[in-house]
Design a binder for these strands. Sequence first.
DNA 1: ATTTGACTTAGAGTGCACTCGAAGTCGCAA
DNA 2: TTGCGACTTCGAGTGCACTCTAAGTCAAAT
Lengths: 156, 156
Amino acid sequence: MADGVTEQGISIQAAADRTGLSPHTLRYYERIGLINEVRRGSDGRRRYDTSDLAWLGFLTKLRTTGMPIKDMVRYVELVREGDSTAGARREMLEAHRVRVVQHIAALQQDLKVLDRKIDNYARIEACETTTTGPRRPTDFGDRARLHGDVTGVRTG
Amino acid sequence: MADGVTEQGISIQAAADRTGLSPHTLRYYERIGLINEVRRGSDGRRRYDTSDLAWLGFLTKLRTTGMPIKDMVRYVELVREGDSTAGARREMLEAHRVRVVQHIAALQQDLKVLDRKIDNYARIEACETTTTGPRRPTDFGDRARLHGDVTGVRTG
DNA sequence: ATTTGACTTAGAGTGCACTCGAAGTCGCAA
DNA sequence: TTGCGACTTCGAGTGCACTCTAAGTCAAAT
């Protein structure tokens, strides 16, 4: 089976393909306790099942939303400690949720600045293509100091 | 003037306070060419003016939206090369813009997963507080393997 | 006069999250 | 039977973006 799929589970390479993580990273996650020891086949190699993949999927969401590995490890420890930690886990996720929401809001603000800057470039290009005759010395700024880059953003 | 503000510009500490960057980072940015050499006062110390701060503000937007330092340096090089590179700069910013938009979209998707997970915790807590008598063995999953964490996310 | 504290430099160190190298094992195909 | 490629372990290495150290200068306050 060249695709690494058997009824006992799938190979590390196949799991890597499905999760978007590398085999190196999958072993690393296991080493630091983010996932439990993965079941091994008769050959001693890792066999990932669907619940391994589901858990990895969730971990990946935490990572891509910016949760540090340390916090993820803490969360997993709480899971292992059992139902009594459910409240603490919820609190962790809610605090994380707030950070993600704030991050999105910040990105949206920054995007506006980026858009203004791009707009400025577009305006300048339009100006240059419609203007004939000698280019007048640009008043777009003092390049020597990077100040007032052609699309310079004003503070405030 | 203890606040580091004079008519020739403000001290590195004052600039740090205003940009949210540390004095170390301000020197670092200068060293790697993200900002031009900052004007010095008669005592040889850096004096940041408003255009320095405006430029730093823009750089910070690029950073917080995830542009790698290397790309920022490249962008700054283009600015220094003059008007002829305006097109290339616009392309850089537009490509970056696309990445930011995609990143925001991904975060919003991930946020949904997070919300579902938090919702699940809330549901479980509601269940526990309304249920009297012995807790029935949870069918929330096999804690020993981290599979189906109480709030386990199903793939698909 | 001396102490304090903010600054200066070049270069080294840190923390994070991987990522890889080396050496060895295994099953299978030619 | 001799490779091949995918796996195994452990520990070391990488790249990024800072972040700090050490040794020195300087101005103002005590």
